[in-house]
Design a protein around this nucleic acid. Sequence first.
DNA 1: ATAGTAGTTGCGAATAATTCTCAATTAAAG
DNA 2: CTTTAATTGAGAATTATTCGCAACTACTAT
Lengths: 151, 151
Amino acid sequence: MPRLSDQYNEDENRNSTQDLLWAHGIKATAPRIAVIDFLVQQDNPLSIGDINKKLPKYSTASIYRTLDVCIDKGLVNRVNIDRSRALFELTFGRKHHHHIICTDCGDMEDSEKCLPQDIEKTILSHSKKFSALSHHSLEFFGCCKKCDVHE
Amino acid sequence: MPRLSDQYNEDENRNSTQDLLWAHGIKATAPRIAVIDFLVQQDNPLSIGDINKKLPKYSTASIYRTLDVCIDKGLVNRVNIDRSRALFELTFGRKHHHHIICTDCGDMEDSEKCLPQDIEKTILSHSKKFSALSHHSLEFFGCCKKCDVHE
DNA sequence: ATAGTAGTTGCGAATAATTCTCAATTAAAG
DNA sequence: CTTTAATTGAGAATTATTCGCAACTACTAT
């Protein structure tokens, strides 16, 4: 699982984050750099609450706005798992992937297996309203091995 | 697209909804019957707000609780599309399906094309934390033909 | 370097969404 | 018909999200 922090040393970190934002057409401001720097360190997607708590220096509104713009520019991915948990992760430096979520404890694991290439064509050929697809959301649920034992 | 209302006449409707709830191990109370009766008529998944507005007679808390219990018992499916849109639809009387959502206007279409059967096995064979999957969530996004024209 | 400018921030208030509490009610079983 | 455990409604409490606007700042062009 490649991470941005693996590719740049600590001292250059700030600079590299700025470049990353620029490369996505996003102005490099303090809260944006902080959010991205934080997300880079994460293995799993995080909620807004998590990010907000970890970065009390910046206003909640800015965290929301930062995530919005980064999603818009394709630097961040939103994972919708349930009503009250929208989670966020960096797309940069990672292969396209999906998640397996434990229905019991909420623990997550990445899965790099994706849809077969031809499935979108098949779907479009049966669709009345759509002639092209831009992306998809695919998440798997199950009870993880740890929770399975405790039953 | 089969609907419960196709299978029972108007007069028997109340009774059939009661049976439907019972069959899922859910006590048949007034708000639950109302919610299910309403969902039966819908072609697309609805938000809590929609349901709540349509059924002012029942308390918001009951709508939430009804949906929670019905999801738990497998009678209702929650579709997570974005942060502020959790949508709900009946599972009963419908084939397992997914949705295509227009990123512009939010209009939706069902798609009965699902994942290939072997994909879950493949995923599990690569997974460290999971040995079984219970279900999945798969949604497609694109710009619908109507919106495509307006650009 | 410096100044201009458009875009961004922080704050707190406004709004919306969700959960909670608990007394009163009711579905289902006996 | 009675009993009982589960459910409801109402509103308060909590949490999540958005908004408005004056102050600030990253980037651009001098």
